[in-house]
């Protein structure tokens, strides 16, 4: 049974594309045939994060408009056998996607893939709407910060009212919370909302906490999804998240502040 998972947030810059790349790669590493689709028409970036920007010939909009077929547009990942990318168009605008066209392409993808990951653009306009409309599950990416939490709640409202599942009266989209850019030290000092605070406000099931990490920038610099950096905290946190999405129980890691020694505290170490 193949699944369409949308990665969404409302607010920009919280880590949707980083998350799409990491989760998609993680699913492929576990043997699932996975495709990641970039819905951010006009501002594509998934190709850069995945490191395949020089191999984009045809894109999602070409397939929607029947200017190319899926086989021509799907980019096969060089690292993993099971992983494919469908890039967004860089030249068209958001209205280039139509509901009928997106539905046709997603149905075609569902026939061959176990997981279709939809990387939503920021905002609540057409691209974001179409990215979530056909979804079976949603990963709501949230930073522990007021505007991100509020926008996530707004997205949850849209997921439960403006999707195919809600309009057809089917089972609702399964919602998962993913907290990213988490600073345990700042939480401990009372400067940042805690995991429990965000969970309490949004009241959806938490599937992972990704700590603020230097590994994320390093990964995007080189075009490798951060989950491949299995030595890094963020990579391991994403790996746990993928396992939880697949139904495994895993304790949360990287949510406690590192204990500082007496001298570090005395002399203002980091």
């Amino acid at each position: 049974m193949s699944k369409i998972i949308v990665v969404t947030s409302g607010k920009g810059g919280v880590g949707k594309t980083t998350t799409s790349a990491a989760i998609g790669t993680g699913l492929a590493m576990r043997g699932f045939k996975t495709v990641i689709v970039d819905f951010d028409v006009g501002l594509r970036n998934l190709d850069l994060i995945m490191g395949c920007e020089r191999r984009v010939v045809y894109d999602f909009v070409n397939v929607v408009n029947n200017e190319a077929n899926l086989q021509q547009a799907l980019i096969k990942d060089k690292r993993l056998e099971n992983l494919f990318i469908l890039a967004a168009s860089q030249t068209r605008d958001k209205d280039a996607l139509t509901q009928e066209g997106v539905e046709r392409v997603l149905n075609e993808l569902k026939n061959t893939f176990d997981y279709v990951i939809c990387d939503s653009p920021a905002g609540i306009e057409k691209g974001a709407h179409l990215a979530m409309y056909f979804a079976d599950e949603a990963i709501v990416v949230t930073n522990p910060e007021v505007s991100s939490v509020r926008d996530s709640d707004r997205m949850l409202g849209l997921l439960s009212s403006k999707s195919r599942r809600s309009e057809n009266g089917e089972d609702p989209i399964k919602e998962h919370l993913l907290i990213t850019r988490y600073h345990p030290e700042r939480v401990e000092k009372g400067e940042m909302l805690s995991v429990a605070d965000v969970e309490e406000i949004l009241s959806i099931k938490l599937k992972g906490v990704i700590p603020e990490s230097q590994a994320v920038l390093k990964a995007s610099n080189s075009g490798n999804p951060v989950i491949l950096d299995d030595q890094s905290d963020a990579g391991q946190a994403y790996s746990d998240t993928v396992d939880r999405l697949l139904g495994k129980e895993k304790p949360l890691r990287f949510i406690e502040a590192q204990k500082q020694g007496f001298f570090a505290r005395l002399f203002g170490g980091k």
């Binding site: 000092k189 009372g190 400067e191 909302l193 805690s194 605070d197 406000i201």
Partner: peptide, 8 residues
Amino acid sequence: TASASVAK
């Protein structure tokens, strides 16, 4: 600094 509780 209790700013997180204000935020919540």
